[in-house]
Design a protein around this nucleic acid. Structure first.
Lengths: 313, 313
DNA sequence: AAATTTCTGTAATCTTTGCTTCAAGGCCTG
DNA sequence: CAGGCCTTGAAGCAAAGATTACAGAAATTT
């Protein structure tokens, strides 16, 4: 009795063969992504306002031995769906390495990224990707003491992909000059995790008053800048260290870079080609010739572009 | 018995109060996103290799009436989580969230970090941690076009933890000045992933001739600098993007920061205290007062230090 | 090492579950 | 409207479930 097919599909498929009561039951099951089918037959019967024999009859009709058998299938299916996108990270080796900092770190990081993903709103992610892909908008990046590296990383890539990207200086004294240009077209990407830095909020506040859109990357507790931000990504940062981990933030950045790149590949193609040419022509970079890339596996998921290679480090 | 808190968080929170068997159980529960807790107590007992009373005791410890009560909570929680992905599904048409770039990215990253961990020699990791913790050695960090952010991140932390840390400028023209000081005590930390940059190798080569020790972070294929490096970390970088992912490298960096910090906590304590005082006294930073850290869970794994807070962002 | 406390599994108990049986109710066909 | 067929829920029962009590094991203290 081991249908490989998903129970959901099975239910929809057999919908025609079902009786009235069975259909009522199936609606309840489908409605709650099957989780209602994980309680006792009695309770499910009450919930669906049918009798328990009806449930058993439906289970049999779908090809199961009985309710328990169907429940096992449901549990498997739910379990598979719940399976976190980031598999548990584990350092191999002898058992004594389990307590090594690397192992503990790996465990924490895998949890962090997973929970960051859980709380991530994919629709918001897409909206931000669209925003950053639009060359109409000028982009400004700003990071705190630690997160400056993240801002820099993001900047590094965005700058190659598209024009009008600025990394704000770490010293607040030169911010006003950039602030002048932040009108309605400007997007300010801010990184602020604990301990939150007052100056970042001040700048964000001023930028909003100028009409800029704020995209915020912060931690699970939320920077005060959230009040000003149109878009906000919260990432988990706790690890067994005296320091917080910005790995989950980096994950979001890299994913955004991938998406922004693919969205703006048309415009960025010319841009990258031009960049290539400049590197080739300029004497300054002559000593900077790159070596041959050694054996590398194919990357089928990446849209190959004529210029493909410059965009790699 | 309706705890608002998520069961998962509840479990982690109370982890310290749990007994050995209970912890074993909690690990099984947590591992599979709680779905294992949806079957009968007997089966769960077998799965976790504990007895059924242990399960009940854990349930009670977490504040539930019994196993059934906890199961209800689990079902609610799972149900809530099952709904969210569906909501995400609606927004951008028929795109299944499984195929979203974020999901694909997560999968790739998970593989990357895992495979990086597999190849990681823990003994080498420890030797490098020891090397970087030793204040006798001066540290120089150097990154390529993209990896400069990683170098900067590492630098940012090391600089707070210990003295004598230098981030080499991105422009090669000023390298010779630093090169002068690289004698036998110097450690040069280089980041070089494809496409490998010739200049980095040149500098590494010269540094070695001066007697410096090289610690290299590279990709799976290996930078040519490997020939000069005493220590080498290879990280996986491929993701479904036009760009490579440096997440695995960042992972290593963060783990190293944690280890170096804990090894040199004695010396760094004074250092951080001094830094704290300077920030406090200096008028320049007066406007830079940090805000209160909001509610955060305790971090039992972290060795609390008297100075504890400055070392966070 | 003895004593005390804490932890954990076995066995017995009581509750609930899943399932079968069976009769009442609907619904079309004749 | 009577007779057959299908659907549906009430009642009952064996089986598995959850829970308790208790005793051996382990760890801690004395």
């Amino acid at each position: 009795m081991h249908k490989k097919a998903l129970l959901r599909d099975l239910l929809k498929e057999k919908q025609a063969d079902l009786t009235a009561a069975e259909r009522k039951l199936s609606a309840v099951l489908l409605d709650d992504s099957l989780v209602t089918g994980l309680q006792s037959i009695t309770r499910l019967a009450e919930r669906a306002e049918v009798s328990s024999p009806t449930i058993i009859r439906l289970a049999r009709k779908l090809g199961f031995d009985g309710y328990s058998d169907m429940q096992d299938a449901i549990r498997d299916e739910v379990g598979a769906r719940m399976k976190q996108p980031l598999a548990k990270l584990e350092a191999p080796g002898p058992t004594d390495s389990r307590h090594h900092i690397v192992s503990r770190f790996a465990e924490a990081v895998s949890g962090n990224i997973n929970r960051t993903l859980e709380r991530l709103d994919l629709a918001e992610f897409d909206r931000v990707a669209a925003l950053l892909s639009d060359p109409q908008h000028r982009l400004y990046l700003l990071g705190g003491r630690i997160t400056r590296s993240n801002a820099h990383y993001f900047f590094n890539h965005l700058q190659i992909i598209r024009p009008q990207v600025t990394l704000l200086d770490s010293s607040p004294s030169v911010w006003p000059q950039s602030l002048l240009d932040m009108n309605g077209d400007a997007v300010l990407i801010v990184f602020d995790i604990r301990r939150y830095e007052k100056e970042l909020e001040k700048l964000a506040n001023l930028a909003v008053k100028q009409g800029a859109t704020i995209v915020l990357f912060t931690d699970a507790w939320g920077s005060p800048i959230e009040r000003h931000a149109q878009f906000c990504f919260r990432a988990m940062v706790e690890v067994p260290s005296s320091w917080d981990s910005t790995l989950a933030i980096n994950f979001l950045i890299e994913a955004l870079v991938a998406e922004v790149q693919s969205r703006s590949s048309d415009q960025s193609a010319e841009r990258i080609a031009a960049l290539e040419q400049m590197i080739g022509e300029s004497r300054i970079f002559r000593s900077n010739e790159r070596l041959e890339t050694p054996s590398q596996t194919s990357k089928p998921m990446v849209k190959r572009q004529a210029n493909g290679d410059v965009e790699r480090e």
